[in-house]
């Protein structure tokens, strides 16, 4: 279990306790965190679950695979530690993670 804070672009924060083995995207949609549409349900196809990882947490959230890298890069959205949240699997080491939500998804 990890307690994760999502900060909307307008500053509103949402805190969610997310189970181990669940993706960050599933945790967010399960708690109705606004701004994560996740249309494809985690198939890494849509790019609508983009979040920006707090710099202090970048190492612990891992790196983008090539497919994710290309999606973000060619949408022009690969800056500011952007990640597709469906690709980050939660475990206890992410307890306290802070992510920021973009104003609009890809």
């Amino acid at each position: 279990m990890a307690r994760i804070t999502f900060i909307e672009s307008n500053g509103t924060t949402h805190t969610a306790d997310i189970n181990d083995g669940t993706s960050l995207m599933e945790g967010a949609t399960g708690h109705n965190v606004p701004g994560i549409d996740a249309d494809c349900g985690g198939a890494m196809t849509c790019g609508t679950c983009l979040v920006h990882i707090d710099p202090a947490w970048v190492e612990r959230t891992g790196t983008r695979c090539e497919h994710e890298q290309q999606m973000l890069e060619f949408a022009g959205r690969d800056g500011d530690n952007a990640r597709l949240s469906c690709q980050i699997i939660v475990d206890a080491t992410l307890d306290g993670l802070v992510v920021r939500l973009p104003e609009a998804q890809i």
Partner: peptide, 10 residues
């Protein structure tokens, strides 16, 4: 080819 898809979407 995610690049072609994303570029195409734009």
């Amino acid at each position: 080819s995610p690049p072609a898809f994303m570029a195409g979407k734009k």
